[in-house]
Simulated assay, not measured.
Amino acid sequence: GKMSCLTAFLPHTVHHVCTLSIPTPRGPPKACPYHISEQTITPLNNTKHFQVSAYMDQRVKGLDIRIISIFRRDSIQPLHCVFCLVIYNTSCGPDLDRLLQSYSQEGFVEMVPWPINEYLTPSTGWLFSKYGGDVHYFGQLTTLNECIYRSMTRSRYVLLNDIDEIIMPYQHNNLMSLMNVLQQQKPNAGVFLIENHIFPKTPFEKSKKLPLPQWKGVPGFNILEHIYREEVDRSVYHPHKMIVQPRAVEQTSVHEVLKMFGEKFKVPPEVCRIIHCPLRTPVQRPVERLHVDTRLWDFKDKLLPNVTKALRRAGLLSSEG
């Protein structure tokens, strides 16, 4: 269905008015009681936002319901047009759990419980001959397809990539600007293949400006330090990840869509590529054979304070922070 949104910004809140289309019913509507809520402001679960009301409004053709809501402006993450990150959570440590819960309350992360190990023995790696198990890699194929269908009516695009990968535009300031151009160039495409580029964990840039003092002791590694990119070997199969229009996909695998409506398009790497920072790489190449790629640094002025704010909110900063 169609959705249009009108947004008015106030100092601390965003007042949101959305209009939704409803499919034409196949028969006469069933009679049902007429309910009016006694609450004029309804908190939305696990967020800091509120719904006010919803009204039938057929003044605009194809749009039937007008939803009025309030979004706290200080709880809307400016993350370059990515609306919601869906994480299928089998298990995680207490530090990561606190951080994810904090993001969930902001409305940026949707946590989907995925207790696959209570029902099957999942493989813990992608190679079945090595890891075995009843189901491949924690049920990865199932979660990818479930995410597409979960997003079918609410999202224009879905990014299918791993947690250590960033789909990065190189000629546009954000993903929506990129997709607007690609969609104009390829109007029949519903699947956009993005080439994978590995940024190994070592070597890394030892700049004193990047690891902020208050980040000391935070688990993980700083992706901004990893600016050396491996050359792609196109003589062998090279994987892609995807940006898809969910309505164009019937069934997907990890690197390719299996059944779809419309066309697919391989995006040139100079336009957009994946910044992939794996924990380990099979071969360590000398720095002379790597390319310096500092594209992530273009976002560091916004990224550093936002990450610091998120870490502080989750209680993960050291005493120096």
Results as ranks from 00 to 15, higher is better:
G1Q: 07
M3S: 13
L10Q: 15
V17Y: 13
C18K: 14
I22P: 00
P23K: 03
P23L: 04
P23G: 04
P28D: 11
P29F: 06
K30E: 14
A31S: 12
C32R: 14
Y34I: 15
Q39V: 06
T40G: 04
I41W: 02
I41C: 05
P43S: 04
L44T: 10
H49W: 09
F50S: 03
A54Q: 07
Y55Q: 15
Q58T: 15
V60P: 03
K61N: 10
K61D: 13
L63C: 11
D64L: 02
I65H: 02
I68Y: 15
I70M: 08
D74Q: 08
D74T: 07
D74A: 06
C81L: 01
V82K: 00
C84Y: 04
L85Q: 11
L85M: 10
V86T: 13
V86H: 08
I87S: 13
Y88G: 06
T90E: 12
S91C: 13
G93R: 12
P94Y: 05
P94D: 08
Y103N: 13
Y103L: 15
Q105A: 09
Q105I: 04
G107Y: 02
F108M: 06
E110T: 07
E110S: 13
V112Y: 01
V112H: 07
I116A: 04
Y119T: 12
Y119K: 13
L120K: 13
S123V: 00
T124K: 11
T124A: 04
L127R: 13
F128Y: 15
F128R: 15
F128G: 08
Y131H: 15
Y137N: 05
G139W: 02
G139P: 07
Q140P: 01
Q140I: 06
L141Y: 13
T143E: 05
N145A: 00
N145G: 03
E146I: 05
S151G: 07
T153F: 15
T153V: 06
S155P: 03
R156A: 09
V158K: 00
L160T: 00
D162E: 12
D162I: 01
I163R: 11
Q171A: 12
N173K: 14
N174C: 15
L178K: 03
L182T: 02
Q184A: 09
Q184I: 04
K186L: 03
P187S: 00
G190R: 00
G190W: 00
L193E: 09
L193T: 02
E195I: 01
H197R: 02
K201G: 02
P203L: 04
E205G: 02
P211M: 03
G220K: 10
E225W: 00
E225S: 09
H226Y: 02
E231V: 10
E231L: 07
V232W: 03
V232S: 14
V236A: 06
H238L: 03
H240D: 02
M242H: 07
P246C: 07
A248V: 02
H255G: 00
E256D: 08
L258V: 12
M260T: 05
M260G: 06
F261I: 10
P269H: 12
I274E: 04
H276E: 08
P278H: 09
R280A: 09
R280T: 10
T281S: 14
Q284A: 10
R285N: 02
P286F: 05
V287M: 13
V292E: 15
F299I: 00
K300C: 08
L304M: 15
L304H: 12
L304T: 11
N306Q: 14
V307K: 10
T308M: 14
K309Q: 14
R313I: 01
R313D: 11
L316S: 08
L316K: 04
S318F: 11
S318H: 15
G321A: 13
